[in-house]
């Protein structure tokens, strides 16, 4: 375990150096969030809004929390990892006395957690403190209940685990494609819609929603956010969280199996 922690920490330190990108990223996301909220605001002015399965305030927290934890989404690859796979350098990982999948997972974990931390804090400050100060209370992120906050943290942990497993899976998939373009261009499309980043999952047509909330993408955004805003209670969420953990186990098993086959192929071919 210590080895994996060291690998994750080393990668996290590097990722934390991109501060200028973080500042620019924060500005972009804050602006983006405001556009989204204005569009939802306009939709909620319609007569059918009364029957909507979410209050407008809950949609607002959906938007802000989605932006705050945007970096946890598995929609890209660690560039360093991708290069190593492409050049065949991954084989060197076999020389270290730790499990190869564990190493990959640890690096994915760093990618999905460290950048999120430096983006999330300013986003919370912006959405909870600054917006009310400039007279935009209606757009502000409501403070959670204690239970909501606790459950959010738990669900966020699950989200990062899931996301790291998916990221690792994308990296493994690179071993089979020449350029990896397929994964890096198709994964974001899938992830944005199914996780709730495009529109909150509860607002999807009822039939679609019933399926999507049980897929391994709902745990990335939808579950944590709805626990934070109180749209879901801990009791309601428990089976869904359990399902996400089952998905995580399956994704790790799948990633492991594929990596094993990929490595055998590389070693046989002499990569």
């Amino acid at each position: 375990m210590r080895g994996y922690v060291a690998i994750a920490q080393a990668r996290a330190r590097v990722l934390l150096q991109y501060r200028a990108a973080a500042v620019a990223g924060f500005g972009t996301q804050a602006f983006w969030g405001m556009i989204r909220i204005m569009i939802f605001e306009a939709f909620y002015r319609s007569a059918m809004a009364d029957g909507a399965p979410m209050r407008f305030e809950e949609v607002v927290s959906y938007v802000w929390l989605g932006q705050a934890t945007l970096m946890t989404l598995p929609w890209n690859l660690d560039r360093e990892m991708a290069d190593e796979v492409r050049t065949g350098k991954v084989v060197y990982g076999l020389l270290r006395p730790v499990d190869l999948y564990g190493q990959w997972f640890a690096r994915a974990f760093a990618l999905r957690s460290a950048p999120m931390v430096i983006r999330a804090l300013p986003m919370f400050a912006f959405a909870m403190v600054l917006l009310p100060l400039v007279g935009l209370e209606a757009w502000a992120l409501e403070a959670p209940t204690l239970e909501g906050l606790a459950m959010w943290l738990v669900a966020l942990g699950v989200a990062i685990l899931l996301s790291s497993a998916l990221t690792t899976l994308w990296s493994v998939a690179l071993m089979w494609t020449v350029s990896g373009d397929g994964v890096t261009h198709l994964a974001p499309a899938l992830v944005t819609l199914m996780s709730g980043m495009v529109i909150p999952l509860p607002l999807l047509p009822d039939g679609v929603r019933a399926v999507v909330v049980w897929l391994p993408f709902a745990g990335l955004v939808d579950l944590p956010v709805r626990l934070f805003s109180g749209h879901l209670t801990a009791a309601e969420a428990a089976p869904m969280l359990a399902a996400q953990l089952v998905w995580w186990v399956l994704l790790v098993a799948l990633g492991r199996a594929l990596l094993g086959r990929g490595v055998r192929r590389l070693v046989v071919q002499g990569g």
């Binding site: 939709f43 002015r45 529109i199 047509p205």
Partner: peptide, 11 residues
């Protein structure tokens, strides 16, 4: 499209 399906119209 999903939002229109839910809310009928936009303003």
């Amino acid at each position: 499209w999903a939002l229109f399906a839910r809310f009928g119209q936009l303003d």
